[in-house]
Simulated assay, not measured.
Amino acid sequence: MDASSAYQDNLPVTSDALLAQLDGWGIGYQLHTHVPLRTVEDAKAVEDQFLAPGERALRLKNLYLRDRKKRNYLVSLEQDRAIDLKALGAALGVGGLSFGSTERLLENLGIRPGAVSPLAMITGVQKGVTFFLDAQAQDADVICMHPLVNDRTVVMARDALLAFFEKIGVDVRYV
């Protein structure tokens, strides 16, 4: 199955339910619908049109990782940052990082490949997933991310994203 909203009904939390929850909490965002974005390059082709002139945006690439002790991590980094899993593991203070399987991604974050997002912590926090966010987020005006599906993007103010994490009980760790 693909990661678009056409198949969201098979997710533990649908994109529609997530957006309704954000609305219920009064957490603001701008929603954009587009063709499914599967790669950073796909996202770069469309995300500029979502941003206001001069807006400092953090655009993310998201990694679902496991360590040798089978602990799960979601790491959201600036999309152009080079990734070396050994160096990343050292920065996070964990060893033996590898990518989690598609099955574990769905089980632990409630999403499919291509739709990995900090917003998936709505499921991940209940499954004990540890979240790390690029330290550049602290200087961003807005953060662009998928709302659990890859044919939608939300642009959310940094403070709104932090309010979301507070509501669901996520301890944000910066890397």
Rank of each mutant, 00 (worst) to 15 (best):
K127Q: 15
Y64F: 15
R71Q: 15
S101R: 10
A120C: 13
C144T: 11
D84H: 09
G24A: 14
L85Y: 13
G89F: 11
I111H: 10
V149K: 07
H32Q: 11
A43M: 08
K86R: 15
A57C: 08
P53F: 00
F131E: 03
A120H: 08
D48V: 05
A135L: 07
A157N: 07
V125M: 09
L63F: 01
R112N: 09
P36D: 06
A43F: 02
L65H: 11
R56K: 15
V125I: 14
E55Y: 01
G26W: 10
T39Q: 10
V149Q: 06
Y29K: 03
L51D: 00
L133P: 01
R152A: 09
L58S: 05
M145P: 01
D139I: 00
A91Y: 10
A140E: 02
G100D: 08
L77G: 03
N72F: 03
N62V: 04
D151K: 09
Y64V: 09
G54W: 03
D80C: 02
D151Y: 07
G26F: 10
L51Y: 08
Q138L: 15
M156N: 02
V35E: 15
D139H: 14
R38N: 15
L22S: 02
V154R: 10
V35T: 13
R152Y: 10
T153G: 00
